[in-house]
Computed example of a mutant assay.
Amino acid sequence: MRKKEPVTLTDVAAAASVSQSTVSRVLSRYPRVNGNTRKRVLDTIAKLGYDTSAIQRKQAARNSKATLNIEFLLCPRAEQKDMLSLSYFSTVFDSARNYFGRTDNVNLNLCTWDKTRVERPWARLAAADGALVIGTPDRDLLRNLADHHIRCVLIACGSEEFPLDVVGTDNISAGAAAARYLLDNGFTRIGFVDFPDSEEWRLRKLGALAETAERCGAEHFQCRVSASTAPAPLAATFREWMAEGNFPEALILPYSKAMLSLELVLHENGLSCPADVSVISFDDGVNDSFHTEPARFELFPDRIGAKAAQRLLQLIHGSDETPHRIDVPFDFIPGKSVRTRK
């Protein structure tokens, strides 16, 4: 007599009309499964006599692992009073937390770097199994992380001076690509808005934009530095620039919401985008508040957060301790903020 083949997870999924991953989630007691779906899967398991012991052993082994304590270190600029109220940072945090939740037992703790109270956050970092660092860390923090061999991943920040892992986007190369896009569309007076930054990053940005200055003439390529990323200082920067009488015909903005300040100043002067000024930006959340959909290099903070969490676990588990720079690619969205000149 032929021996009966054991019931597989694939058999259960087919009989319950769900995916194999849904069956796995039910067996792992994953909370976000529809109640009716959960009941149908469990009834099918009982009806077919599926042996769940292997999955239960795997779950028990996972639960027996030591809990990892990981610090999510926020390094805000002066104007960023609540970093997690900004969509980019909150999305990075949520995606990192979700990744940890799928792969390891992790306590993810929020911590803010405050220069005036270095002892407290530093003690937490030194005691943690690892750290994710986001925002604008200063050189002293980066040096301490490197010197004390803290397992950490910097998210969209860092310095080539220190051998630390970085996950982010190559916004310097993307900025150069934005400039080329404007040049190729016939613009010759191009401007770039920046924020206070380290000398190293400033030189890298200007180096990447050197081609722009060369192709349109140095006198036609301008850069202005806003006092901060807040709307009021940005608007003040645009007003001062406009008052000088040499406002560029095309702008590269560091993030899309900066366009709201630009649109305000253009309206004050009877101008509009893209009829009078064309814009390319970096996306940190585009919504209906824009009068004109910005052309932009779209960021993927969810991918950045997950990739940073994955890389940190590799460091903690010792699978690859060589510092890496991992860039998550941009997508260019043409939008409607660049006027075709050719």
Rank of each mutant, 00 (worst) to 15 (best):
K3H: 03
R97E: 14
V277D: 04
T229N: 09
R2Y: 11
S289V: 10
A14R: 15
S198Y: 08
I55F: 05
F290T: 07
D320K: 07
V279R: 05
H291S: 10
R311L: 08
R102K: 13
I252S: 10
L110E: 09
R97Y: 08
R341N: 15
I316V: 14
C223Q: 11
P334L: 02
A210W: 07
L142V: 12
V166S: 07
T292A: 06
D320W: 01
T8L: 05
V193T: 02
G207E: 13
S28Q: 04
R25W: 01
A258E: 01
A218K: 09
R202M: 04
N246V: 14
C273A: 09
V118M: 15
I252T: 12
E249I: 01
I155F: 02
K65I: 01
S272D: 05
I304N: 04
V338F: 03
T52L: 02
T103H: 15
N109V: 13
A230F: 03
P294F: 02
L9I: 09
F89A: 09
V277C: 11
L141Q: 07
S256P: 09
V167A: 08
C75S: 03
R215W: 00
M1A: 12
T8D: 05
L132F: 05
C216T: 15
E240Q: 14
P196E: 09
D283E: 11
E211T: 12
G285I: 02
D327Q: 08
P31Q: 05
Y50R: 13
L266Y: 11
C157V: 05
H324M: 13
M242L: 09
P31I: 02
A127Y: 13
R224I: 01
V133S: 08
I190C: 09
P163G: 06
Q80M: 14
H324D: 08
T340Q: 12
D104W: 08
N105H: 10
D43Y: 03
D129I: 01
L312A: 12
Y99K: 06
T91S: 15
N269A: 03
M259T: 01
A176Q: 05
S53K: 14
L154S: 04
G305Q: 04
A230D: 11
H291Q: 11
G135N: 12
L86T: 05
A78G: 00
Q314C: 11
Q314P: 01
D327Y: 13
